[in-house]
Amino acid sequence: MQKAFLFDLNGTMIDDMEFHIRAWHSILNGLGAHLSYEETKLQCYGKNHELLERTFPGRFTLAEKDTMSIEKEKQYQEAFRPQLKLIDGLAVFMEEAKQLNIPMAIGSAAIMFNIDFVLDGLNIRHYINAIVSADDVNISKPHPETFLKCAEQLGVAPENCIVFEDSPKGVEAAAAAGMKAVVITTMHEEHEFAAYNNILCFIEDYRSLTVENLTKEQSFM
């Protein structure tokens, strides 16, 4: 029975969410939002356009949102580039999965500008068999469309996919897609996921995981 691994990107493959939150905190408050850091953190899910619309309903045109989205990502990339690296253990984990012919996908609310920044900056594109970005879905997480499209592109049944996520909204999307999840606690604590029963385990990084143990049949029960 074919298994597949579906990775969120930010906070899951690279530990960069703090840089996204800082960038949005600066931009949103510069536009008059008056949000605290913690309030900004709660808004950091889904597409950039959706975040802007939640914060400033009806205020900006699509073109204005496009411009602000790119400017935010440029600000984020400039700040994070010196620290760009995979979360500990992930390189070994992905190589093990590749050797075992387990397909891998990225399912992220990031735009391709950011996904390319990571894949090419870390030279890991050869591990990834499918990509579903913000531009590829109508509704982002917690809607399941992102992960269902990943499964479809890989040709693997949703129930045989394991999602790697760092956020409650992402785990909710996995549950809605009928998928189990591994939670990386880079930005959220275990108690914040108490509402979800599709979680296989919590990890701080990938050094404690092996592909063999994770893909055992009992892991999907």
Score class of each variant (00 low, 15 high):
Leu62Phe: 08
Ser36His: 11
Leu35Thr: 07
Thr61Pro: 08
Gly46Ala: 10
Leu62Ala: 08
Arg54Gly: 13
Leu35Glu: 02
Asn48Pro: 11
Tyr37Met: 13
Thr61His: 13
Gly30Lys: 14
Glu53Asp: 15
Thr55Ser: 01
Phe56Gln: 04
His34Thr: 10
Glu50Tyr: 08
Lys65Gly: 03
Phe56Ala: 05
Glu39Val: 12
Gly30Pro: 06
Ala33Gly: 04
Leu52Val: 09
Leu51Phe: 10
Tyr37Ser: 04
Leu31Trp: 14
Tyr37Thr: 09
Gln43His: 09
Glu64Ile: 05
Thr40Phe: 13
Gln43Met: 10
Leu35Gly: 02
Pro57Gly: 09
Leu42Gln: 06
Glu50Cys: 06
Ser36Thr: 15
Lys41Pro: 00
Lys41Gly: 00
Glu38Ile: 12
Ala63Pro: 00
Glu64Met: 11
Thr61Gly: 15
Thr55Asn: 00
Asn48Leu: 03
Gly58Tyr: 04
Thr40His: 03
Gln43Cys: 12
Glu39Tyr: 05
Pro57Met: 06
Cys44Gln: 09
Leu51Met: 11
Thr61Gln: 09
Phe56Lys: 07
Leu35Ala: 02
Asn29Pro: 04
Ala63Leu: 09
Leu52Ile: 12
Pro57His: 14
Thr55Glu: 00
Tyr45Glu: 02
Arg59Lys: 15
Glu39Lys: 05
Leu52Gln: 07
Leu62His: 11
Thr61Tyr: 10
Ala63His: 04
Gly30Thr: 09
Leu51Trp: 01
Glu38Pro: 01
Leu31Lys: 03
Thr40Ile: 08
Tyr45Val: 12
Glu53Trp: 07
Arg54Trp: 06
Arg54Asp: 06
Tyr37Arg: 07
Gly58Gln: 08
Gln43Arg: 14
Ala33Ser: 08
Glu38Arg: 07
Lys41Arg: 14
Ser36Val: 03
Glu53Pro: 05
Gln43Pro: 00
Ala33Pro: 01
Gln43Lys: 13
Lys41Asn: 01
Gly46Lys: 02
Glu64Lys: 10
Ala33Arg: 01
His34Glu: 07
Thr40Glu: 00
Gly58Asn: 09
Gly32Asn: 07
Gly46Ser: 05
Lys41Met: 03
His34Gly: 01
Gly32Ser: 12
Leu42Lys: 13
Leu42Phe: 04
Thr61Ser: 15
Lys47Glu: 01
Leu52Ala: 08
Leu31Gly: 00
Tyr45Lys: 04
Asn48Tyr: 13
Phe60Arg: 04
Phe60Asp: 01
Ala33Asp: 02
Arg59Gln: 09
Lys47Phe: 07
